[in-house]
């Protein structure tokens, strides 16, 4: 791709025209006192679209998701703007967000077993979501619970509804979590490494299930993962995070075919190297992510970047390098 580069004001600039977005994040930051754990995160997602958030451990993916649903507790605090189904999530009182959480946007997590209340049957936990977010009466709810369990591929759903989480496998618990999440037909599903803790065959089944549900309901999906193999399978668009910021974002094929940020390039290269099995993690780049307190001024990747130059002590601009494709590097436009 050799489009002439234009310098945008911020990564969000590239998407700002997109009115149909169901989730629009602009300049989101997560702070702990003076420490900025996540900064200048901007992206938007349209109905039916899948955005993958990738990056090494500790780069702020989970914090970003939590901030979007207002799930941060003091001393953590979010700033910026998150518009979800037309409503502003940042700055809205916690109690008011209870109406939105689980209804307009639902969330699933990495360890499905511990994400379910061990003292309640899974049916009761799904029913709680229905009670909170639908008008269904008691009997209709219980019927819907069974239908939901059936939909997420749990055999013998009427009996399994009475099971406790400890009686189900990890994969089944994740299916239960998904059933609970889609109970109210949310517009957005936030998934924080939902398959990382599962073995490979189950992983693939869960991904297929999520894709199928997305086609059925038209929900948008924000999917956090370490695994570029998973990204290649489900992402429409990708946002690569490094040290609390998005360093490159774009359509999945453009980002894989023509990565412009040296970090993305390193990720893609070590992923497709002959010795690397599908599903290899991202921690194969030499060096480690600087912790939030010790990030260098200028480009945070400079300590590990093979292309770093003197200018990299100055914060790099977000450079638009293609349609919907933005990279934050001084040399992103230089099309190597």
């Amino acid at each position: 791709m050799s489009l002439s580069p234009t310098i945008a004001e911020g990564a969000a600039g590239a998407f700002r025209s997109n009115a149909a977005a169901v989730l629009a994040v602009e300049s989101l930051a997560v702070r702990r006192g003076g420490l900025r754990l996540v900064e200048e995160v901007s992206f938007s997602v349209r109905p039916g679209e899948t955005l993958c958030l990738v990056g090494e451990s500790g780069c702020g993916k989970s914090l970003t998701l939590m901030a979007m649903l207002g799930l941060l507790r003091a001393p953590l605090a979010a700033e910026g703007s998150v518009r979800l189904a037309g409503r502003q999530m940042i700055g809205t009182p916690d109690a008011a967000l209870d109406e939105i959480r689980g209804r307009d946007a639902a969330m699933i997590f990495q360890n499905p077993m511990s994400a379910l209340n061990p003292l309640r049957t899974v049916g009761r936990q799904i029913e709680e979501a229905l009670r909170l977010h639908t008008d269904l009466g008691g009997r209709a709810r219980r019927r819907e619970v069974v239908a939901l369990l059936d939909r997420v591929g749990i055999a013998d759903p009427a009996r399994r509804a009475h099971a406790y989480p400890n009686q189900l496998s990890g994969g089944m618990c994740q299916r239960v979590m998904i059933a609970m999440a889609i109970a109210s037909r949310p517009k957005v599903l936030l998934a924080d490494e939902p398959t990382t803790a599962l073995d490979v065959t189950i992983q693939a089944q869960i991904l297929d299930l999520l894709k199928a549900l997305q086609v059925e309901t038209g929900m948008a999906l924000v999917f956090v993962t370490h695994d570029l193999g998973v990204v290649a399978e489900i992402a429409d668009r990708v946002a690569v995070m490094y040290a609390g910021r998005i360093v490159e974002t774009g359509p999945a094929d453009a980002l894989f075919g023509d990565p412009r940020h040296p970090y993305t390039r390193a990720l893609v290269e070590c992923q497709i190297g002959p010795a690397t099995p599908r599903g290899a993690m991202l921690d194969t780049i030499e060096g480690s992510v600087p912790p939030p307190g010790a990030r260098p001024g200028g480009c945070a990747f400079a300590t590990r970047c093979s292309a770093a130059m003197g200018i990299c002590t100055v914060a790099p601009p977000a450079v638009s390098v293609g349609p919907d494709h933005v990279a934050s590097c001084h040399f992103a436009g230089a099309g190597q």
Partner: peptide, 15 residues
Amino acid sequence: GQPFMRTAWAKGVRW
């Protein structure tokens, strides 16, 4: 501090 408490929060269960 358990993860299932966060699930309940994310699900819209009131405090």
